[in-house]
């Protein structure tokens, strides 16, 4: 795992709080993602991970706190957030089901192209050039995730794993500086999970920072430079994989409190149990 030499923050979330009426889903969470980093976000079901994601991407307006991308505070509008350079995928796949694979990726290019209605109707050389460039870029991305041969298929006809990949390609089409992945391996088998792992590394190597929510502990601890654990809307702990894996509060959050004076090695067993538990939990 490579570490960045001079950490320059891509994403800075400070004091993000989200309340729905009386319910506080996210409470005073700080999180920083540096350039070239893969940061994991874990937590039991209902911990507020996706809510936090939605706050970052402008889908929700945080009750308190602010989110800054490369030093500028983001406006709370999803399309402006994407325009600024943060792209995301969704926990439950939200592809444009009745568009082809290529068209899905082309929609992702929306913020990086400027052709309006007039140029579409007049079809000047500028329009043709931009359209050709967009298609080329989209095909390049499809090649990157390995779906180029299915460019003309309807996205709804893709198998599950490829739909997940396509969502990532679509997000990457907006040329983001930070990619938010919401449970990218949910419902995948071990081989597919491994492939996704490689894909995320490859994305990082393209200079895109990644923030990933995941329940698969093996996946997240392999992948992440840092991991943050969210429990009941609050950030419990943040640090390297080892730190988080060893943290008793994390184990407690997943498994409940261990009894007093338990032997040392039960902690390790607990982590394994937590992994097993989390993998089963993916089905939900």
């Amino acid at each position: 795992m490579t570490t960045t030499t001079a950490p320059s923050p891509v994403l800075e979330a400070t004091g993000v709080t989200m309340r729905f009426g009386g319910l506080t889903a996210v409470r005073n969470v700080d999180l920083t993602v540096n350039a070239g980093e893969i940061v994991g976000l874990i937590g039991p079901n209902g911990a507020g991970k996706t809510t936090f994601f939605n706050c970052l991407t402008g889908l929700y307006v945080p009750t308190e706190g602010k989110v800054a991308y490369k030093g500028t505070v983001l406006p709370p509008k999803p399309h402006l957030v994407t325009d600024a350079g943060i792209a995301r995928t969704f926990q439950n796949i939200r592809l444009f089901a009745n568009m082809t694979v290529l068209e899905n990726v082309l929609v992702g290019r929306h913020t990086r192209t400027k052709e309006g209605l007039w140029s579409a109707i007049l079809r000047g050389p500028g329009f043709r050039k931009a359209e050709a460039a967009s298609r080329e870029r989209a095909m390049e991305l499809l090649e990157f995730i390995g779906l180029a041969h299915k460019a003309d298929h309807l996205s709804r006809n893709l198998p599950y794993g490829e739909q997940r990949k396509l969502e990532i390609a679509r997000a990457m089409a907006s040329e983001p500086g930070l990619l938010l992945l919401d449970e990218p391996t949910a419902g995948m088998n071990p081989q597919e999970t491994r492939a996704t792992e490689d894909l995320v590394f490859a994305i990082r190597d393209r200079g895109i920072a990644v923030l990933v929510i995941e329940h698969d502990m093996r996946f997240i601890f392999n992948l992440s430079d840092r991991v943050a654990c969210l429990v009941q809307g609050e950030k419990l702990v943040e640090g390297t994989s080892e730190v988080v894996q060893g943290d008793e509060r994390v184990i407690a959050a997943y498994l409940g409190e261990p009894f007093e004076g338990a032997p040392e090695d039960t902690a390790a067993a607990a982590v394994e149990a937590a992994e097993a538990h989390a993998t089963e939990g993916d089905d939900q």
Binding site: A87, F96, N98, E103, L106, V107
Partner: peptide, 17 residues
């Protein structure tokens, strides 16, 4: 394409910018 994307899934479309 953005019209069709809106028709298909407005939330996802706005998340695509």
């Amino acid at each position: 394409r953005s019209w069709i994307a809106i028709r298909e899934d407005e939330t996802a479309a706005t998340a695509m910018g």
